[in-house]
C-alpha cells in the first residue's frame, strides 16, 4: 500500500466567469507516475499552477506530504459570482508562494520552456540548488561557506553527468537544441531535490522517436531519484505507456479516471476527444 503524496480536494479555479478547473479531486500515490490529460484548454496547466502555488484556488484544498499547502474558499467578490459545482469547504485559508512549495519538495517544468536563457547550462542547474542554501547573503558573498558552495557545484556537475548534458555545461541555455532544452528544464527541476516532479507537456514538439526516448528517460529518473511523477501530456502513446493512473479533464471537469485501459475505452473520453483524435 503506497501512501498518498499529493492530494487535491474539490479544487476549483475560476477566472472571472470562466471556471477553468472545477471540483478536481486527485490522489497521487508515492513512487508512481500519474497523468493528467484532456483536450486543449481543459484546465490542465491551471491545475498545475494551483498545485504549485502559482494561483490561489477559488475553492478547495491541496495537501502535499501530509501538509496542507494551499486552501481557500470563495470569499468577498467571488462569493457572489462563484460558479463551481462543489459549494464550499470549511472556511480556512492557507497561502503558500511557489518558492515555499518548491522547497517543500515539489518541482515543476513549464509547457512553454522557461529556462534562464542568457545563463549557462551549469548556472541554470546551480540556481535551482540555491533554494536550499544555508549561508546568508554576507557569508555567501565573502565565500565563508566554501564547503557548501563546493557541494552545490559538485552536485550540479553530477546531475549534468547523469542526465547527459555535461558536454554542454558552459554553453548558453538558449543555444541548446529544443529537445535538450526540455531535458535541461527537467534537470533544473531535479536540482531542487524534489519528491514530486510535475511535468507540463514534456514531449511537446517532439517526434515519435524523441518521445520514446523521453518515456525511457522519465522512467529512469523516476528510479534513480526515487521520484513520484505527475505529468500532463498530449502524446497518448507516452501517457498510455508509462502512467499508472490517468485523470481526464474536459472543460475543467474530471470526466474519467483509472488505468490506461479503462480510460481508453471510456465513452466520455472518446466523446471529449472526438474529432481531436491524437496521432
Amino acid at each position: 500500500m503506497n501512501n498518498i503524496l499529493l492530494k487535491t480536494e474539490h479544487i476549483t479555479m475560476q477566472f472571472g466567469g470562466v471556471v477553468a478547473v472545477d471540483d478536481l479531486n486527485i490522489e497521487i500515490p508515492e513512487g508512481r507516475i500519474t497523468a493528467l490529460i484532456g483536450p486543449n484548454g481543459a484546465g490542465k496547466t491551471t491545475a498545475f499552477n494551483v498545485i504549485t502555488g502559482g494561483y490561489q484556488p477559488t475553492n478547495g484544498k491541496v495537501t502535499f506530504d501530509g501538509q496542507v499547502i494551499g486552501e481557500n474558499y470563495p470569499r468577498s467578490k467571488m462569493k457572489k459570482i462563484y460558479n463551481g459545482t462543489y459549494r464550499t469547504l470549511n472556511e480556512h485559508q492557507v497561502i503558500n508562494t511557489p518558492d515555499k512549495i518548491t522547497r517543500l519538495g515539489m518541482a515543476r517544468t513549464f509547457q512553454n520552456i522557461r529556462l534562464f536563457k542568457d545563463l549557462t547550462v551549469f548556472e541554470n542547474v546551480l540556481i535551482a540548488k540555491h533554494c536550499h542554501i544555508k549561508a546568508g547573503m554576507l557569508r555567501s558573498a565573502f565565500r565563508l561557506n566554501k564547503a557548501e558552495e563546493l557541494m552545490m557545484n559538485q552536485e550540479a556537475d553530477k546531475l549534468l553527468h547523469t542526465i547527459d548534458l555535461h558536454m554542454h555545461r558552459d554553453e548558453k541555455a538558449s543555444s541548446l537544441p529544443y529537445g535538450k532544452q526540455r531535458k535541461l528544464e527537467i534537470a533544473r527541476a531535479l536540482a531542487t531535490g524534489p519528491k514530486l516532479l510535475l511535468l507540463d507537456e514534456p514531449a511537446a514538439g517532439m517526434n515519435p522517436k524523441e518521445t520514446e526516448e523521453l518515456a525511457l528517460f522519465i522512467q529512469e529518473i523516476k528510479e534513480s531519484f526515487s521520484l513520484t511523477i505527475f505529468l500532463i501530456e498530449h502524446h497518448m502513446d507516452l501517457v498510455m505507456n508509462i502512467s499508472d493512473k490517468i485523470y481526464v479533464l474536459d472543460y475543467g471537469k474530471t470526466i474519467a479516471q483509472g488505468s490506461a485501459n479503462e480510460v481508453q475505452n471510456d465513452p466520455a473520453v472518446i466523446m471529449a476527444y472526438l474529432g481531436v483524435e491524437e496521432e
Binding site: 511557489p98 518548491t102 531542487t192
Partner: peptide, 17 residues
C-alpha cells in the same frame, strides 16, 4: 540573475522573490 531572466521560473525553482 535568475529573477532577471524569468521571475516565474525563478520562483518555481524555490527562490523567494
Amino acid at each position: 540573475k535568475a529573477i532577471r531572466e524569468d521571475e516565474i521560473a525563478a520562483e518555481a525553482m524555490g527562490i523567494n522573490l
